[in-house]
Structure formats: C-alpha cells, structure tokens
Amino acid sequence: MTITAPPREPARRKQDVLGRLETELDVWVATADADGTPCLVALWFLWDGRDVWMSTRPGNPTGRNLRAGGRTRLAFGDTRDVVLIDGAVAAYASAGVPPAAAEAFAAKTGWDPRRESAAYDWFRVRPHAVQSWHGVPELRGRHLMRDGVWTV
C-alpha cells in the first residue's frame, strides 16, 4: 500500500481524535500488574468532553491493574490510523460513580453496570498525553496533548 494523502495538519488531527472519542464504542485498554505483566482488553467507554469513563469487574486483571497502577494507555484504530491516549486513572465503586457519567455511559452503550448483580467498578481516565498519526508521514507532529494540555 502506498500512502499518497498529505499529512493532516495538527488541528485536523485533534478534530479527528475528538470525533473518534465521540463516536467509537470500544477502546483498547493497556495495563500492567505490579510484576509488569501486561494486559490488553477492549472496553466500552464514554468520553464526557474531558475524561474517558469505563467500567469493568474489580477482580479481573484490568480492574485490579487500573485501581493499583493509577495509569493506563488507551488505543484506537489500526496501524494506519492510530490514536494513543496516556492518562491518570481514578477508580470508583458503583455507589460512588458520578451519576451523570454513569447515565451518559448507559445511554451511549445501552448497558448500565450499576444494574448488574455482579459488582462493577468505574474508572475515569484523565488524558495527559494524546498522539495521533496515519502512517510514517504523520509521525512528525503526532503529539497533540502533553501534560494534560492540548498543543493545538
């Protein structure tokens, strides 16, 4: 495959990232345990305009790692349309999740973890770094957010 499209300008890349955060249903969630054993799963998510919200069982590896590690990397797309988001994690039990976040999550996904008989925890990811690129021609300028501040 030959890439013939010119690289997108940073403002366009940011617009594309925000569009994906609004429309995608799943995000890849990368974590590691205290020994460094990696875990990668796809979870449904909600973007509220500032944070990414996800829910998963507290006893599974992803739930344990998110709670204990306090950080994650989220990923969208394939190797030709990459979005990476590094962020700090805050964990909430179902009783403590902000109702607006849980209700918006349920409206987007059609699933409300608070209504499950099994326990689900909630995780808020506040982005501190965002990268986006379409192949090698866009590697330059791929950093759209650093230290929690959009660079564009």
Rank of each mutant, 00 (worst) to 15 (best):
T2E: 14
T4A: 08
P7G: 04
E9G: 10
E9T: 10
R13F: 14
Q15S: 14
Q15G: 15
D16T: 00
V17S: 08
V17D: 03
L18G: 04
G19W: 08
G19Y: 02
R20P: 00
L21V: 08
L21D: 01
L21Y: 07
L21M: 11
L21K: 06
E22Y: 04
D26Q: 15
W28Y: 10
V29P: 13
A32Q: 08
D33C: 04
D33M: 00
D33L: 12
L40Y: 08
V41R: 08
A42F: 04
L43T: 05
W47I: 07
R50L: 13
R50K: 13
R50P: 05
R50M: 13
R50W: 09
V52N: 13
W53Q: 02
M54D: 02
G59E: 11
N60K: 03
N60G: 12
G63W: 00
A68V: 06
A68D: 11
A68W: 00
R73V: 13
L74K: 01
L74C: 03
L74Q: 04
A75M: 07
G77N: 12
D78P: 03
T79P: 13
T79E: 15
D81M: 04
V82G: 07
V83I: 14
V83A: 02
D86A: 12
D86P: 03
D86C: 01
A90D: 14
A90V: 07
Y92V: 02
A95P: 00
A95F: 03
A95S: 09
P98Y: 03
P99W: 05
P99T: 02
P99L: 14
A104V: 01
F105V: 05
A106H: 04
A106I: 06
A107Q: 04
A107C: 04
K108I: 10
K108T: 12
G110W: 00
W111S: 15
D112R: 05
E116I: 04
S117L: 05
S117H: 06
A118L: 11
A119Y: 03
W122V: 02
F123A: 08
R124C: 12
P127W: 05
P127S: 05
H128S: 12
A129I: 01
A129E: 14
V130R: 02
Q131N: 08
V136I: 09
E138R: 00
L139Q: 13
L139H: 13
R140C: 11
